[in-house]
Design a protein around this nucleic acid. Sequence first.
DNA 1: ACCTATTTGTCCGTATGTATG
DNA 2: CCATACATACGGACAAATAGG
Lengths: 116, 116
Amino acid sequence: MFVLIDPATATPVFAQIAESIATQIATGTIATGERLPAAKVLAESIGVNFHTVLRAYQELRNDGQIELRRGRGAVVIGAPTANGVRVAVARAAAEAKSAGIPIGTLLALVRKEYES
Amino acid sequence: MFVLIDPATATPVFAQIAESIATQIATGTIATGERLPAAKVLAESIGVNFHTVLRAYQELRNDGQIELRRGRGAVVIGAPTANGVRVAVARAAAEAKSAGIPIGTLLALVRKEYES
DNA sequence: ACCTATTTGTCCGTATGTATG
DNA sequence: CCATACATACGGACAAATAGG
């Protein structure tokens, strides 16, 4: 697990961690089902507070990339992603963008619709 | 601004705060464009740490309900929500649900599509 | 143009709780 | 029962953007 932090960058540390892990998931460096190191462990290895790593993990969870469970750790989720879904999502995103709806609002709409 | 916290409940304090404010936005008790009290002020008024309120605010921002800016505060966003968007979102949500795709993954897909 | 107060943003540290194994 | 590991909350510090004088 290699995570390199650039303190000079404007992007926050937790975001850098999340981005690094997300990239490694996307490129297959970290496999589906694999378990990420405990937040405390990773934090010590890159020299940051464990809360910062935890926040990165929670960001990844909110993006549906990993699953977090107490006592168990962080596990990478495999994305099945049926085809019809992708098409529908693409249309919704395009509609929203052309309507000038911000991403946050769109996500709120999707969540509300999904949970209704 | 009335926010009542029940310490006996299992739901976290920050979630209770966010939920309370979301309800007040939904019911019109808090109007669109209105400014929420500063996190520090609200925190003192309900007797919690200001970080907890800040987290509630950030939750509301992630849900597209308010806009946060340093030095400016938290302002309630009005939802324009064009009609075509609602239809597209509803379809995408339905597709995802029938495909068994969890909400987190769906949101990640939407975000990726939107930002591409 | 400058300075100051306000307010959110991030990070650190500590403590306690809770689900998992 | 116990160790592990995430979850929440508190507290403090400093940074950065905004607003107002």
